[in-house]
Amino acid sequence: MIQVLVADDEAMVRAGVRAILATDGGVEVVAEAADGHQAVELVRVHRPHVALLDIRMPGLDGLAAADEIAVVAPATRVIMLTTFGQDDYIARALGGGAAGFLLKASDPREVISAVHAVAGGAAFLSPTVAHRVIRRYRDVGVSATQARQRVDTLTERERDVLALLGAGHSNAEIAHTLYIVEGTVKAHVSSILDKLGARNRVQAAVLAYEAGLT
């Protein structure tokens, strides 16, 4: 059972997200928070697998809350769920280690898919956000040639893992596909991030895309 915390300052939004997640028998909302401080404290208490955080909340906003959650409960994976899809929000969220970024206008099925993907060790971006991330990397000069040069530093097995990571597979799915244990996948992913100079799986996935692996 995937345990989830939902944080949003609007009660109706929290109720809507809870209703969406309730349609999946493998997901359980274990706590709700109305602000960032409360979200951090409830994550500390419940240690959910996933925290769904709104960006604009009173007191401590979702981005700052995500930073604190990374310290107090590093095993909890964060998905930003927000009305606001500005590039600076996306960059800060992903740069801070968020594993997913969804817009509130997303299809409800995307919310469920994102929770499963992130809980399984993968990353998940709504299509609109994914296009912006790719464009942003192109804008800062990460060309296809540069991406291939970085990927060339990987071992053959690491390239196999990166290709599956870039296609959105979780650690468990990668392990099953490559007939290796999940702990080995985690070790490969750590090495891949280090060699590519990527801060998280999303950045690695973008480089995989630019290098033509996916």
Rank of each mutant, 00 (worst) to 15 (best):
M1A: 15
I2A: 09
Q3P: 03
L5N: 13
D9Y: 05
E10T: 15
A19I: 04
I20E: 00
D24M: 12
V27G: 12
V27N: 13
G36T: 12
H37P: 00
H37S: 14
A39E: 07
R44E: 09
V45A: 07
R47F: 08
R47Y: 03
P48H: 00
V50C: 10
A51H: 11
I55Q: 10
R56C: 10
R56T: 12
G59F: 01
G59L: 03
L60D: 00
D61A: 02
G62H: 11
A65R: 12
A70V: 11
V72P: 09
T76A: 04
R77K: 13
I79D: 06
G85H: 15
D87G: 13
D88W: 08
I90W: 08
A91H: 14
G96D: 00
G100S: 09
L103P: 01
K104S: 01
I112V: 10
V115F: 09
H116M: 01
G120R: 04
A122K: 08
A122S: 00
S126F: 08
P127C: 06
V129N: 02
V133L: 10
I134E: 14
D139R: 14
D139K: 13
S143N: 03
A144D: 13
Q146P: 01
A147Q: 02
T155W: 01
T155K: 00
E158Q: 14
L165C: 04
L165E: 03
H169C: 10
E173S: 12
I174E: 10
A175S: 06
E182K: 13
V185I: 01
S191C: 07
K195V: 05
N200E: 01
N200S: 07
R201C: 10
V206G: 05
L207G: 01
Y209C: 02
G212Y: 11
L213A: 02
T214K: 08
T214F: 00
